[in-house]
């Protein structure tokens, strides 16, 4: 479904992606891991077309995405930092995005799931970080898409919302969606991920299933396994 070839990106003089090769197909949950600054967000934003790569190509379902825009209606994207126009109310935001996408959004079931009903008339600028993240989640999942890209989906969420999110991800996965998730929370990876992609210094350092990861490192949990990879690379 997603095919990435030799992707390079520099910000100024600072190389972030240095030849990423990646092929992801079918459904399932792929965790993109890696230390801070390893290029996770840049990779995601390149797939979304928000960052323009210097070299290399990204194909989605066989067509290159460069200069395209319509493919984004087959995607739900959860940005790392929830930024919204601050003088808009929550309900207005949902209406506006549905209007702009010209798609019928299913916001209400999600609003109830995350308990956002009391905030619907509040201005986005007055919401707390966790509540903004919930709004962010509703916005991402209100349109049915075959591909979801979540950048640090759990930041600021309370346990109840966390459980709601995990359930939601599993539901969408079982109906055939593909997930790309970046996170630093290893128990979440262990619980959800089918596949792990480990980025390091702008390249894919390891790619494979959890079992392969355990086998590769000789560990039986994600956290020590990732730590082991990080150790290996320091040598």
């Amino acid at each position: 479904m997603i095919h990435i070839e030799n992707l390079h990106k520099k910000f100024g003089r600072n190389p972030v992606l240095e030849g990423v090769e990646l092929s992801i197909a079918g459904s399932g949950i792929h965790a993109i891991l890696g230390p801070n600054g390893s290029g996770k967000t840049t990779l995601i934003k390149s797939i979304l077309g928000m960052v323009c790569p210097d070299r290399g190509s990204i194909h989605l379902d066989g067509t290159p995405i460069r200069g395209e825009w319509a493919y984004r209606n087959r995607m739900g994207y959860l940005p790392q930092i929830a930024e919204f126009p601050s003088n808009l109310a929550v309900a207005e935001l949902f209406r506006m995005i549905a209007d702009l996408r010209q798609q019928e959004g299913q916001a209400w079931p999600l609003i109830e799931r995350f308990g956002l009903q009391p905030f619907m008339d509040k201005k986005l600028g007055t919401l707390s970080g966790g509540t903004r993240q919930k709004v962010n989640l509703v916005l991402t999942f209100m349109f049915d898409a075959p591909l979801y890209i979540l950048d640090e989906p759990t930041s600021g969420l309370d346990p109840r919302a966390m459980i709601a999110l995990k359930t939601l991800i599993r539901e969408r996965k079982s109906s055939g969606a593909l997930f790309l998730i970046t996170t630093h929370i290893m128990p979440l990876v262990e619980e959800l991920a089918d596949n792990v992609i480990y980025l390091l210094e702008g390249r894919v350092y390891f790619e494979g299933s959890l079992e392969q990861l355990y086998h590769h490192t000789g560990e039986n949990h994600v956290e020590p396994a990732i730590a082991a990879i990080a150790e290996q690379t320091h040598v």
């Binding site: 077309g49 928000m50 825009w69 493919y71 209606n73 930024e83 126009p85 995005i97």
Partner: peptide, 11 residues
Amino acid sequence: EFTTLLLAQPL
């Protein structure tokens, strides 16, 4: 913020 929000949409 509005702009980044829009950029992730099919526009």
